[in-house]
Design a binder for these strands. Structure first.
Lengths: 237, 237
DNA sequence: CGCGTTGTTGAACTGGCTCAAAGGACGTGG
DNA sequence: CCACGTCCTTTGAGCCAGTTCAACAACGCG
């Protein structure tokens, strides 16, 4: 009965209510996005072009980024050339909050990008003063943790086709796209492969197989349609 | 140059300083363990025997557990029989803190177990009142997140021998065991396999190969010695 | 000692990888 | 508008790490 892709939905992640303090937030500051708006006077809009470097793993984490438009990959480059993509950031996503003093990942623009940079000191000040901000921060961390755990499961238990399907479903849910809608795939096959622990060829073949099964349609290589959110077909295979 | 097993060490995880507020903690309450001691009057010691169920995924999370002795596995059981082990808990580890209202995992005793159960409401009250407790909580979440990400990398980028070696090194670091010391392996091969996304046979063979290479010695099936913490030998293979 | 559980080893199979080459898609310049 | 180069994706063929299936060994426990 358990949905194998259970954690995938944005809804599921956002509704994870954090038990600690101030669960019922005042209107207007219900999420971190709204909280950050209060820092607008200290914020700076920045633009990056495709493949530009936003920040590097190990950099001092003095900035909180909020994606306005475009897509970002969070990755680590290994000495031996292997690359690990931890996650993708979509418009509305916030990055640079969850960590200690160092950036845990290199952030790179996948498509032309617009973001807002907030100085972290300002946010920290707010967090010290406002219990509500702290509750939002905890909820944010909690969501990240849930997402990381879900991904752990995907890599630990699923085969290539299941992984790709899980990825597409999560992406659709995060993009507020439903079955039948067009879903843009800004990242390349290699990015998806490095995220799912597969090779580019296997990703391509898995997508082809899902298409052949009728689970998805692909009008173009970077645009897909999920034909059903009954993912059983992918799981069964 | 980057140590492929970089995140493995307890030291690395514990020293992740959380940037937000009160970084320099007062002595005596530097970690969550000490914080919980303040709740001693509300605490209850519990014992479980091997394979006993401590709590189930989805249960209301009203309790914070601190392991006194023994080992716990945190897992999810899939409908189709697959099992995913998210992590193991060792003496001193705390569980039940990082989540919303629901337990994210089923917790089961791997060996005979003794733990202390704290009511969560009491902790939440402390967190509301004390900025220090909150800082510790954030640090705890941050550590969990780092561990989850590291594991994501292990599953995404490493082969079977590397995964087993990563696992052993992390276990040794968490157990405060160094090269040359005996390291107890309370969990069975199947548990390790389900944690690393491998089969029991592959885990057994990987351990055999590491032994043959001289990277480890194993006096018995549940006791190993890491002969070097220069993990390159495993990575290279 | 007998038996159940757990770990190891062997042999065959296969899913995903590697290597290689053939299609697009897109931008640039003629 | 087309020719061309570059980058990315798809497809094909062979191979190998890890799985599967099966048998055996070791250990703990009554």
């Amino acid at each position: 009965m358990t949905n194998t892709y259970g954690m995938a939905g944005k809804a599921a992640m956002k509704t994870a209510r954090f038990g600690l303090g101030l669960a019922g937030a005042e209107r207007g500051e219900r999420d971190l996005g709204s909280v950050l708006k209060a820092l607008q006077s200290h914020a700076a809009r920045q633009r990056f072009e495709r493949n530009a470097l936003i920040c590097s793993e190990g950099d001092a984490a003095r900035t909180i980024y909020k994606i306005v438009s475009g897509t970002v990959r969070l990755c680590r480059h290994m000495a031996d050339g292997r690359r690990h993509i931890a996650d993708f950031l979509l418009p509305g996503d916030i990055f640079g909050l969850a960590e200690g003093g160092r950036q845990p990942f290199t952030a790179e623009a996948i498509s032309d990008l617009s973001l807002i940079a907030y100085p972290r000191v300002q946010f920290d000040r707010m967090a010290e003063e406002s219990a509500l901000v702290r509750a939002n921060l905890l909820a944010h961390l909690s969501e990240n943790l849930a997402a990381a755990r879900y991904h752990h499961f995907v890599l630990g238990c699923q085969n290539s086709k299941e992984r790709v399907m899980s990825f597409l479903i999560r992406l659709a849910a995060r993009s507020d796209v439903f079955a039948g809608d067009h879903l843009e795939l800004p990242m390349g096959r290699q990015d998806i492969a490095d995220h799912l622990g597969l090779t580019i060829e296997t990703v391509s073949r898995a997508i082809g197989a899902l298409k052949a099964e009728g689970a998805i349609s692909l009008p173009s290589a970077h645009e897909i349609i999920l034909n059903s959110l009954n993912h059983r077909n992918a799981v069964a295979a």
